[in-house]
């Protein structure tokens, strides 16, 4: 593991059957980076996260997370999947959902400890959902559920947090405090976030990577914005309108 490099992808290729999803992707993530992964739908952002989690194996190339094979680094990762569907009647309480984040820390067949439960409560407090800990998951709104899943990602006490479109269903009011929470966490851990919300990039994020089959750009956000416009094939002015800092140049 090179100094400060926690994620190292080299010449990574990935395809689903015959469809190439990622080609020749090279990506280095440093300690305490806050990286936004942006790109069009189907561009391979989620696939990239899944490669980092070891849920997918690259066809070619090397993926190293904390200097290890991604599967072996899993316990250092926190993950928020893209909104997933489940049976709203599913018999599970909010606290039980959050404690899933501690499953890997316990041996199979061992009960959760007091420390686990305290960590679960703390994670719920961070997302403002502690009053719901005994509720059933089906009774929450989409945004509240998303906050619970964020708590589940936090309770693993990760060194690297991988978030796949975390704010998709969250109301704007809570979005602000969510980004502040991430900003706070970022003092100690690294964060990679897939997002479509480019306006957020301007205020909270220091690096961006644009993925559309290839990794088009990776670096600090300022120069990146023009590349994004190129990649999305939309005029820069439209983006600049949302991105006040572009006009500053």
């Amino acid at each position: 593991m090179k100094n400060g490099v926690i994620v190292d992808m080299q010449h990574v290729y990935f395809s689903y059957d015959d469809v190439a999803v990622l080609e020749d992707v090279n990506l280095e993530i440093q300690q305490r980076d806050f990286l936004a992964l942006i790109g069009p739908n189907g561009g391979g952002k989620t696939t990239l996260l899944k490669l980092l989690l070891g849920m997918l194996e690259p066809d070619r190339g090397v993926v190293r997370v904390f200097g290890k094979n991604p599967r072996q680094a899993r316990r250092l990762l926190g993950y928020l999947p893209q909104v997933f569907t489940f049976d709203f009647d599913f018999p599970i309480s909010i606290m039980e959902v959050v404690l899933m984040g501690r499953l890997g820390k316990r041996g199979i067949g061992r009960g959760y400890t007091k420390a686990d439960k305290a960590a679960g409560l703390e994670a719920l407090e961070k997302v403002g959902m502690e009053d719901f800990r005994d509720s059933e998951i089906g009774k929450l709104s989409g945004g509240q559920r998303q906050r619970v899943f964020i708590a589940r990602a936090l309770v693993t006490e990760p060194k690297l947090l991988l978030l796949d479109e975390p704010v998709a269903s969250i109301d704007t009011q809570w979005q602000q405090s969510f980004y502040e929470l991430l900003h706070e966490l970022n003092k100690n851990i690294s964060i990679v976030m897939v997002t479509h919300d480019i306006s957020v990039v301007s205020t909270f994020i220091d690096k961006i990577a644009c993925v559309n089959r290839r990794l088009y750009y990776h670096g600090s956000k300022k120069e990146g914005m023009h590349k994004i416009a190129e990649m999305y094939e939309c005029p820069v002015q439209v983006l600049a309108h949302e991105m006040p800092f572009l006009d500053e140049k």
Binding site: L53, M55, Y79, F86, F90, L103, G104, Y112, T156
Partner: peptide, 18 residues
Amino acid sequence: KEFQALSFDEEFSEITGV
């Protein structure tokens, strides 16, 4: 708790190392 987690969200359980 493992069976409950597996039934609720297999993908996430896998990632936590179960």
